[in-house]
């Protein structure tokens, strides 16, 4: 039931507002020549897209590097966050509030502050210019989101379901596998997605620790968008956006799809 009437024009205006910034990038990447006063480019050309996906452009390898780093970061995040969140919600821990504050603090602190501090130490340990080093510095800014998502998931989970399973004879492992995990899977979508996205979009931190040797997508495209060729910059930006978008959609389908079909999602 529609409780408040808002004119459709407002909705259309809002949609337009959020879609319009993509339009010039599309035009520029596909336009042959796009001199100033023209609103629509003169003729079409795939020049920019050919340049982006040229054999030695490094685009594909940058995409893989980005995704690989994001995946490593997220797997580590999930592995350490789920037990931590479980303990925070159910554990009745001493100093619970303090532990939670410590674990969530990185949300607010700029990643660059931490990475500048740790830079020289990483240099000494030989972690700079390595994928491992980049993965390690992507952990701090993304982990709190996974912890928070897992915590919300545990908080909204009916404890009686678990107890019912226990009464039916399910041990700790069976309970985790058959009761907790299925519920968590849907609840973790937000956390996992954010973790991947945060890792994917890091620029300054990757540049500082990767030293230009670990070439992720943002590292590769930055020179093009800060004053380079507009067509190629636009194409790269669209590739970057598309990777992020596809990642979000596929995670949503993979993790939540099962629940949606059965219409049981409580998240």
């Amino acid at each position: 039931m529609r409780s408040l009437r808002v004119p459709y024009s407002v909705l259309i205006l809002l949609c337009f507002l959020f879609v319009i910034p993509f339009i010039p990038a599309l035009l520029a990447s596909l336009g042959g020549v796009w001199r100033f006063p023209l609103v629509i480019p003169e003729g079409w050309s795939f020049r920019a897209w050919e340049a982006v996906f040229r054999e030695n452009s490094g685009t594909l390898s940058a995409i893989w590097t980005s995704l690989w780093i994001a995946l490593c970061v997220t797997v580590i995040n999930v592995l350490v966050s789920v037990p931590a969140a479980y303990a925070l919600v159910r554990g009745n821990l001493r100093y619970r509030a303090a532990i939670e504050a410590i674990l969530l603090a990185p949300i607010f602190v700029p990643a660059l502050a931490v990475v500048m501090g740790i830079h020289l130490t990483f240099l000494r340990l030989g972690l700079t210019e390595t994928v491992l080093g980049v993965v390690l510095v992507h952990l701090a800014p993304s982990m709190p989101y996974v912890i928070r998502a897992a915590m919300i998931s545990f908080e909204t989970m009916n404890r009686e379901t678990e107890q019912a399973a226990q009464l039916l004879g399910a041990g700790p492992w069976s309970r985790f596998l058959f009761v907790i995990l299925p519920h968590l899977r849907a609840g973790l979508v937000a956390g996992v997605t954010l973790s991947m996205l945060i890792s994917l979009s890091q620029y300054s931190v990757t540049l500082l620790i990767g030293g230009g040797q670990v070439v992720t997508l943002p590292i590769l495209l930055f020179p093009y968008i800060s004053g380079g060729d507009t067509s190629i910059g636009s194409a790269y930006t669209l590739v970057f956006s598309a990777v992020a978008l596809l990642l979000v959609i596929s995670l949503d389908v993979a993790l939540r799809g099962h629940y949606k079909k059965k219409g049981r999602s409580r998240v």
């Binding site: 037990p83 479980y86 410590i102 502050a113 931490v114 500048m116 020289l120």
Partner: peptide, 24 residues
């Protein structure tokens, strides 16, 4: 439960607070 929190806690302490302290 303390053991459950430990990995996340250690990672945050070394990578985050370690970095901050180093920077300080």
């Amino acid at each position: 439960y303390a053991l459950f929190v430990l990995p996340a806690f250690l990672l945050t302490i070394t990578l985050f607070f370690g970095g901050l302290a180093d920077g300080l």
